[in-house]
Design a protein around this nucleic acid. Sequence first.
DNA 1: TTGTAGGCGTTATCAA
DNA 2: TTGATAACGCCTACAA
Lengths: 349, 349
Amino acid sequence: MANQKRVTIVEVARRARVSAGTVSNALTGKRPVSPATRARILRAIEELGYQPNLLARGLVNRRSGTLGVVVSGLEYYGPSRTLVGIEREANQLGYSLILDLLHTPEADNVEQVLGILTSRRVDGIIWAVHEVGENRAWLSEERLHRLPPIIFLTMGFRPGVAVITADNRQGACLATRHLLDEGRRRIGLITGPLSWWEARERQAGWQATLEEAGLSPDPALVVEGDWNAPSGEAGLYRLLERVPDLDAVFVSNDQMALGVLRAAHLLGRRVPEDLAVVGYDNIPQAPYFWPPLTSIRQQLIRLGSVAVRELQKIIERRQAGQEPGEPVQMTLAPELIIRESSRAGAGSG
Amino acid sequence: MANQKRVTIVEVARRARVSAGTVSNALTGKRPVSPATRARILRAIEELGYQPNLLARGLVNRRSGTLGVVVSGLEYYGPSRTLVGIEREANQLGYSLILDLLHTPEADNVEQVLGILTSRRVDGIIWAVHEVGENRAWLSEERLHRLPPIIFLTMGFRPGVAVITADNRQGACLATRHLLDEGRRRIGLITGPLSWWEARERQAGWQATLEEAGLSPDPALVVEGDWNAPSGEAGLYRLLERVPDLDAVFVSNDQMALGVLRAAHLLGRRVPEDLAVVGYDNIPQAPYFWPPLTSIRQQLIRLGSVAVRELQKIIERRQAGQEPGEPVQMTLAPELIIRESSRAGAGSG
DNA sequence: TTGTAGGCGTTATCAA
DNA sequence: TTGATAACGCCTACAA
């Protein structure tokens, strides 16, 4: 296994009795090759078990055929869905993915991650890290200039930056309006940590919808959670202390909503009769909560695939030496999934 | 931005008034460089914003510094945890990850995936695809020989193949023994699809434990599910038809257990008084099920990190031209997490 | 349609 | 300790 000559394009060429360049042409199709020689070449490749070296290829072409993907919160449902969408589309377009995880969205090793991706000469970057606190501080026009094309997921729009995101505000509107339509009037809100952009967006949607309906978004109706179930449970206790006649809660994710359901159960408040509950994310378990949970579905897989396609456009434009043009800023519509936890007529059967 | 000369190691060298080789040595530390010149070099790097080109480096070193990771079922809890562990450790050891997803474990594009990873010259591969049906048919000694070092997760041991896996059989033993200890005697089983190795292992653990206790693992006690909640729900109905005095179920994952809990609820069977339930995986929602679900925790993050470390050992050995030696075959111990769904004394409060 | 020469950005070898 | 020089494996002019 050791003294085998490494099989390169030159070996293939030798075997097929052509030059290396011709093999290259046969492989990439960038220049015509006669059927006869192509056949010889393919046979040689087959016999030798030749595999082109993409490192070498990338070196000369100055494009690696890779995309850097930076993700946080992969342990949650949302990010992993998005990653699936990214991978699928990237694969489709012939890119490989170089994956980097930030173990917390506030991670301080951003420069290190960017450095590695740059050194690996990725053709583009997808930044799928939740916008939290100051974790976009590094994002300056100057910094972007020294980076490959990059597209951001899940953050607010800002000039000069390509952003694609699910419409969180709209999702919250759908949820809140639904509760209003069901005749609820004292609608509480359990948010995610307000340092998170998404949490603030969802709060804004709730607030706007209430105001539109002529109701006051009383601060007493709002409790800040931490995305996890225990904070949802605690949140409902707090809310009911302050607002005993609460008749609905919009909870910023399903995980916390699960805590809310438990609290309601323990307090003997019937859901939905006494208290309607709507979550967010529509995780796979939601239909099996007790009662089944109304929630907001986001097009997360689609988010991922759209991001890749848009990124590719940017890459190609830059490759062609064209001006970047106005960066995409796109928003994907959410969808309300109604289940028993908020349905007027629903009993607990 | 166009007529800027690309900043390579040669540019740095020119600016620091040394040769390219010296810059390389300063960077890699493979050969000594005098403090003075090193300082000049570092300054030049700084001023130029130089980023080494890892493609070129990989080409000459014949090691890319990347690991290929092939995963299926990323939408589930387990695989994404494992991936987190892999990424963390890989990062630690200085590897980048090239990610490939199989959208179904029976995927037929295995050769394509292997081809890409080989072409990208990954230093090693982690195959984190569930063993299902014939999806290991490609795995032959001959095939392995033409591949970079590779380590498999989640499959049965076989000679000559490096495998690291959570101990599914042991997990099932823990679950079943716990139910026996709680005084249960008619213990049903809802399995995953039996084409899955893990499902069979868990069944084997259940069966062995029953036999050990002198009980018969009556086939009537077994129903095959599909890992999803509806099949768990349907499974309990079927089970109770056949075995009306069933007093416990071991369910092969938490998702199906969620369905079981719903079925029990709808039938008015109290959990755990009438029916004890144990799941598998210990997903984050499990403590918030109603009642909170007893489950089996697997060390999935650890599985990932151990896999990377073991893979590195193999890589280094091969790099050093040593014989591969006996491949690792390691099993990680699971842990029983007891909650109300199976606790004797537990009421539903 | 095919061959030849040169270069992509690094590192390793051999001198100095 | 440092500097030339030759690979690494592939692609692209340019020439034939």
